[in-house]
Computed example of a mutant assay.
Amino acid sequence: MLRFAVIVILSWWVAGAAHAQTPGRFDGWASAIVAADWRTSDGQPIQAFDNARRDLVSGFLAAGFSRADMYDATLRPDVTPVVTGDAAIRGITEVAGRAQRGCLLYFTSHGSPQAMVFGQVQRLTPTRMATMVNEICGARPTVIVVSACYSGIFVDGLAAPNRMIMTAARRDRPSFGCSEDAEHPYFDGCVIQSLPTASDFIALANAARTCVKTREEAEGLTPASEPQVSIGSDMQLLLPTLRFTRPPG
């Protein structure tokens, strides 16, 4: 009986040790979450973008991303130290240089039909965004999320077999939730709300789009922002295998 008990205990210990040593699905993935603006459309300071950055960091850590391989920053000028757009790109490049299995890039900001705000003076056009992502992430599996008005302008330039792109709006539509009383931009809030139950990035995109549509309809907001999703052929096969981590139930 004693021998049997010892065998059972050893079996449990071996199983637990093996589980603890099993690599996570996002081990070796670099991630970056940047709040690239801090103002309302009329220039008043707000917290919505920074609130989104804070809660997206928590959500993606819970989903299995590593803090050691995650870069996050706010580009607002009224904090110390001030991070410029160039400094943020250097930070993203540095973390992607050491974690090379995949990339998650998430930007939340204001946008126009031509570009996304990226700090006090910089603007990221679709061409510049595509060049930046090519240089930082290359051919590795990459998920890019752009939460901004008119962010659909980035889809065509970023699309590739190894990429998934999510945007908060069509190329010709604004998104909502950047007012002084908003906790998060609506799209970011829907991503944050959906992360704890979504199984993977495809499920997350679908849930976030449904959430945005429901909220806009409930508040009578028009025209609908219509968040966009583009999934490359390689990612269609890979993403279902990259399931988010969930705490044991």
Rank of each mutant, 00 (worst) to 15 (best):
I7N: 03
A218V: 14
M166P: 02
Q47V: 08
G157T: 08
P174H: 00
V82E: 00
I165S: 04
G220P: 06
N51L: 06
C178T: 02
A48F: 01
V6A: 14
P227T: 03
T210K: 03
T40V: 06
D72A: 04
S41A: 14
V212N: 03
R209C: 00
V79S: 09
F244N: 02
S147M: 05
F65A: 01
G177D: 11
R25A: 10
V57H: 11
Q47H: 03
A17T: 09
A224T: 10
T125S: 15
T93F: 11
S225I: 03
V121L: 09
L2W: 15
G24M: 12
L221G: 11
T127K: 02
F60N: 01
H110G: 11
E94R: 11
R90H: 05
R54L: 09
L204N: 00
T197K: 08
L104N: 08
A205V: 10
A207D: 02
Y150S: 07
M235S: 04
G102I: 09
R123D: 11
A35W: 00
A130D: 08
S199T: 05
A148D: 02
G59V: 01
Q21Y: 10
F176V: 13
R101S: 15
A182F: 00
T214Q: 14
R54C: 04
T142W: 15
G157S: 10
S66Q: 08
T222D: 11
A205F: 11
N134G: 08
A88S: 10
L75W: 00
A130Q: 06
A17Q: 13
T40W: 05
P81M: 08
V146A: 07
A182D: 15
G177V: 06
D37N: 14
I92P: 00
A218M: 10
E180D: 10
T40G: 08
A63P: 03
V57W: 05
I144G: 01
V121D: 11
T40N: 07
F26G: 06
A139N: 14
Q100S: 13
N134S: 12
I33R: 01
A182M: 13
Q47N: 12
Q193S: 07
A182I: 07
C211A: 10
Y186D: 10
V14T: 08
G220T: 09
E217A: 15
T74Y: 00
D78T: 05
R243Q: 12
D188A: 15
Q44R: 15
T214P: 02
Q236R: 15
D69G: 06
P161I: 03
V121K: 12
L56G: 08
P240D: 10
I46T: 14
I92L: 07
L75S: 03
Y150R: 06
T108E: 05
R215M: 15
V229W: 05
S194Y: 06
A73Y: 00
I89H: 03
T197P: 04
D188M: 10
A115L: 02
L237E: 07
G16Q: 14
F107Y: 09
V146F: 07
M164L: 14
A32Y: 06
S11E: 06
F244L: 04
A32K: 07
P196N: 10
A68F: 04
A30R: 05
V8G: 08
Q114I: 12
S109Y: 00
A160H: 14
D188I: 07
R54Y: 09
K213E: 00
S179F: 14
G97V: 05
Y106A: 02
I153F: 13
L221D: 10
C149K: 09
D156R: 12
S233T: 14
R209E: 01
R173V: 06
